[in-house]
Design a protein around this nucleic acid. Structure first.
Lengths: 246, 246
DNA sequence: TTCCAAGGTTGATCTGGATCAAGTTTTCAC
DNA sequence: GTGAAAACTTGATCCAGATCAACCTTGGAA
């Protein structure tokens, strides 16, 4: 691991409050790996031997069943992922692959489990982190069950604009095919939906999003604190399924 | 609270490992309530002032958005629910109503948060519980995104049969309209789907499920450890979204 | 610079599941 | 027991979104 990696990790909510000694202990048993683009570094079903942290690049969490596959989340730096599996010493429920060249920290799950028995502040951080992850997936499930695809697209685009600081225009952080899968629809349908949203306050130019009439788009998306966030408690971004940042 | 309530609560994984003194402290600030059927005791968006435990009866967790509503989980005794919201001191993401007359324990969230700073074993239990809840919702999301409604119905019915001990015949634990909403479909569609599954190893008689050809039904449902469980680690049943027990 | 593969769009068609509208059965309050 | 409301079923129809197929666009790699 590079020395400059440490402050970035230490800055995460998960590791912020533990003692320096314990943090260093955890880091000495950890190591960093550089993965090429498109590498599947976690296969669902495998034992969760490591907690992962993305330092650079980005990662897709996805699920397979039978021949089908769907995107469950995209993880951007700096964030942890698959915390729950490491903690329960259980098989990964999702697979992970790099979306681009990525630098990943691996922390042995067993060290993690030993640590939160030793460091109370760390265990409190883990609790907060897990609770935040849980709420994040619940929000996700709510969107899937309560909204149709046009509403999911509109609320996603608005949320991204807000996360970027309320900007009127921004570039999609991920490929459209990936976004489509995340939103539970086909690429074709996303393409058509984006086009249909012109006239409802949206304009697309390639991967560029332009909100031409925020009021109109908002009326359609009906954003909701309890689905689109933000969560009240300071969640930061060390989350497993950061739907709000996707 | 009645004295006979205590052992039942103490038996939950969440409270099993804390010291007796701390358990008693937590219980003295808690109280029990009896709710009539159909009462909405939690409204999404309200502050999560209490952790809830169902001792008797059953509870539906559901979500609303705009005019729509959907069932997110059903909670059977003895289980906790809305743990994550209490811990984060955040608004409930879901509403809850009694499905029948129910006896509920309320534990003040603030006491809960204070307690896991004092009792390490308890904080470990909370961590395990939250991780289990998280994985439970992820499984749920996987079913919703990867399976069509027929597959969701078939795998649900098989899972129930297995949870009941691999029985060939059992009674649905909940009303069909509720089950339909939980499975993300309309009552009409559930009704038709159940009928269509006759000939694939299933026979319905009112609320009674009869598995006439397990192999055939299994081939159709393609049950998967990573969706339908059980989880490897001993999860018991003190979970927030116990999809495996619904 | 050119070429090719992958991503994206567009159109035509199909279909799973929703919706609407009657019935029928069950449940439960009186 | 009886009546009324709620749950459930069944049929007819509709539509959102999937699928299939063709084409265009973009971004690297040689």
């Amino acid at each position: 691991m590079r020395p400059e990696d440490l402050p970035e990790i230490r800055h995460l909510h998960l590791f912020r409050d533990m003692t320096q000694a314990n943090f260093e202990a955890l880091m000495t048993s950890s190591y960093a790996l550089n993965f090429p683009q498109g590498l599947e570094m976690i296969r669902q079903g495998d034992p969760a031997d490591f907690l992962h942290i993305v330092l650079e690049g980005s990662v897709e969490l996805f699920a397979r069943w039978g021949g089908r596959e769907c995107t469950m989340a995209m993880v951007q730096p700096v964030s942890t992922f698959i915390l729950a599996a490491s903690i329960r010493d259980a098989p990964y429920l999702m697979s992970a692959r790099t979306l681009e060249r990525a630098r990943i920290i691996l922390i042995p799950s067993s060290d993690l489990r030993a640590m939160f028995r030793r460091d109370t502040e760390f265990s409190v951080s883990v609790i907060n982190e897990l609770a935040a992850c849980y709420r994040s997936v619940v929000r996700n499930a709510k969107t899937l069950k309560l909204r149709n695809s046009r509403e999911r697209v509109a609320s996603y685009l608005l949320r991204q604009s807000i996360l970027a600081g309320g900007v009127v225009s921004y570039t999609l952080p991920v490929e459209k095919r990936l976004l489509a899968s995340y939103l539970g629809m086909t690429p074709e349908n996303l393409s058509r939906t984006l086009k249909a949203l012109e006239g409802d306050g949206l304009k697309m130019d390639g991967a560029r999003v332009i909100i031409t009439d925020r009021a109109k788009l908002t009326a359609l998306a009906q954003p909701d604190k309890l689905i689109d966030g933000p969560d009240v408690a300071g969640n930061e971004n060390g989350a497993g399924l950061p739907s709000t940042r996707l």
